[in-house]
Amino acid sequence: MKVLSLNQRAALLSLVILVGGLLIWEAAIPAQKLASEMTEYERLTGAGSAKAGVPPPSQVIAKAWEQLSNPFYDAGPNDKGIGIQIAYSIYRVVAGYVLAALIAIPLGFLIGMSPIAYKALNPFIQVLRPISPLAWMPLALFIIQDSEGSAIFVIFICSIWPMLINTAFGVAAVRDDWVNVARTHELGALRTAFMVILPAAAPTIVTGMRISIGIAWLVIVAAEMLVGGTGIGYYVWNEWNNLDLTSVIFSILMIGVVGMALDALFGMLQRFVAYNE
């Protein structure tokens, strides 16, 4: 018999765990009894009325098929396709994240290059960083007066810290030897920054960006539950209010899939900027 490679064996095991898990889940859901099978007593106590239980995986898969085959339908404010909801969420994450990167990376450069800027700004960073991003929400709603803008602000404020800290750390840790190479070749400040410091610090900066996008995706779900209207977080909460647990489970899975895709994107970027000494 041909021996399977490590990856093939791991994939096989994953598949077994998936199928096994789904079967156990399916078997664990008690079937709804038909009215004709019920005793008089059961009918009188209302056991026959539709009972909201955890749906079995077969229903979730059917729901996923239905939703994913038409992801972009728009049937009014409370009934939009999953694709539209995710697109709204991604739009907010990207907007807040890009704003954060535009500030965090240059500021991180400054802090990394200048010990005095580091010492001066460090107390502010240390106080602001541990604040739960959602704690900003009321203040953001009051100041910005717009739920959309507030959600973007919350993403901005949660994704700025890992990028800022990692950029500063990466820039400060650039080896003196490489800076000396730039100095002995008379590279100007700008060329030193782009030719030596940026590529040298890039792996650390991208690690910070990867952590940030992960946090942003975690936070957007909670933020959208609060601000409502559109987005995957709102969708989860809306389906909970509809008592449609099949859709809740399906959207939870979608949150995971999109989060994984975002992370993989930055994983690729990380491999692109990586170097071996």
């Binding site: 030897d177 490489w178 000396n180 190479v181 100095r183 002995t184 070749h185 008379e186 590279l187 030719m195 030596v196 590529p199 040298a200 890039a202 900027v273 170097y275 071996n276 000494e277």
Partner: peptide
């Protein structure tokens, strides 16, 4: 420091993210 004085350091001081050729071309271009 100045381009009038070239330095070869003990630990090579090549830029690890650049290819061999680019490690030289950036100096020549400077």
């Amino acid at each position: 420091p100045s381009l009038d004085r070239g330095v070869v350091f003990q630990n090579y001081s090549l830029l690890p993210w650049l290819s061999t050729l680019k490690n030289v071309t950036f100096a020549v271009a400077a």
